[in-house]
């Protein structure tokens, strides 16, 4: 379903969605972040890329998932804390970040369904905003089968046409959102459609960064386990882990207990994002570490995203958002690494 929505009507639309929790990008001290919105007027869709992707709403950085406390009868009682199931809408989702959720879906699904992830995921509608202008100088979505107008994972896709948005509803969930304020949405004119096509065409041209030969990367990686490239490329790494913490597709987590009181016992079990770039990540309690150095950990990051995941799910585990490049304190650039991989031995 294709519609247009006047920009000035946008807050009214959001108002009609009062039964939903609304999340949208908010600017805080020069940084953009997805936050819970109280008033529709808070939403400003002229934002650049957010620091974290909306993954943080579906799969929070820190999640208390069990509570435990001493009880008289059975000694210790363990209580399961499942996320509340109020429906949510996230506005202003970049197409790359929506696609990223379709990739984490694969991990959190399977034989053991992760209820914490899926309870939120199923209740959350994603309203995308296409990237007429790349939100980051390091955007490279076109390399990894994405596009500034990709609809993967989205329920609604909005495109900025100047004084109005072109609104495409893509799923049942998306239709419900648009239907809640039917009168605000108008049928697009021929001019609107032409405008959209023009903006889409131009947007692709504005993406300047790409991996020259991405198709060669997965087969090349297969032969590069022992390559000196990993040593060379990881030399400057300070193991801060920012590349993986900011990545919209990374899903690794740690599990720990936190004690509020030891007598009587009261505490919680939490899971927090973890990071394959840390030495601890694979270290056995005996001290043995099967991935003992920076080189093997960088190799793991690149291999997982561009070979193992491809082998398993036929997708790169990367959506080209460019966060890991922009924020790396020592300038490790995944595009440059992949270019070297594709040229390796040539």
């Amino acid at each position: 379903m294709e519609k247009v929505l006047a920009k000035k009507s946008f807050p009214q639309w959001v108002k009609t969605l009062s039964s939903y929790k609304i999340f949208a990008p908010i600017e805080k001290e020069d940084l953009w972040s997805y936050e819970l919105i109280e008033k529709p007027e808070q939403i400003n869709l002229d934002y650049l890329n957010t620091v974290l992707s909306p993954k943080k709403i579906i799969f929070p950085q820190r999640e208390v998932y069990l509570e435990f406390f001493a009880s008289n009868e059975e000694g210790i009682e363990v209580k399961e804390l499942l996320p509340d199931e109020k429906p949510s809408v996230i506005f202003g989702v970049r197409p790359c970040d929506a696609k990223a959720l379709t990739l984490t879906d694969k991990v959190f699904g399977g034989d053991f369904e992760d209820l914490y992830y899926w309870n939120r995921r199923k209740q959350t509608a994603l309203v995308g905003l296409s990237c007429s202008t790349p939100p980051s100088p390091n955007c490279f979505c076109l390399t990894v089968d994405g596009s500034p107008f990709s609809k993967d994972g989205l329920d609604v896709l909005m495109t900025d046409l100047g004084d109005k948005y072109f609104v495409e509803t893509l799923t049942k969930k998306g239709e419900q959102l648009v239907n809640s304020a039917k009168t605000l949405f108008k049928a697009p004119t021929e001019k609107d459609k032409k405008n959209l096509a023009k903006i889409q065409q131009d947007a692709k041209k504005k993406i300047t960064r790409q991996v020259e030969n991405i198709k060669k990367v997965p087969p090349q990686l297969k032969e590069m386990f022992d390559s000196p490239l990993w040593d060379e490329e990881s030399m400057s790494c300070i193991q801060c882990g920012i590349c993986t913490y900011l990545c919209p597709t990374c899903h690794c987590f740690d599990i720990n207990d936190e004690i509020d009181s030891s007598s009587p016992l009261k505490g919680k079990r939490i899971r927090t994002w973890d990071n394959c770039q840390f030495p601890d990540f694979t270290m056995h309690s005996s001290g043995h570490n099967p991935r003992p150095d920076k080189a093997s950990r960088l190799r793991q990051r690149i291999m997982h995203k561009f070979q193992y995941f491809v082998e398993l799910y036929k997708n790169y585990q990367c959506t080209g958002c460019g966060r890991c490049i922009s924020q790396c304190p020592v300038g490790i650039d995944i595009i440059e690494v992949l270019d070297k991989v594709s040229d390796y031995g040539a």
Binding site: D111, F253, C276, H304
Partner: peptide, 24 residues
């Protein structure tokens, strides 16, 4: 084989080797 593991059900990523999970 031994690997560091946290979830045991193929989500947390600690025991990933190549395209498989040691726990699964």
């Amino acid at each position: 084989l031994e690997r560091r593991m946290k979830c045991g059900v193929g989500k947390c990523g600690h025991c990933a080797i190549d395209y498989i999970y040691t726990c699964l």
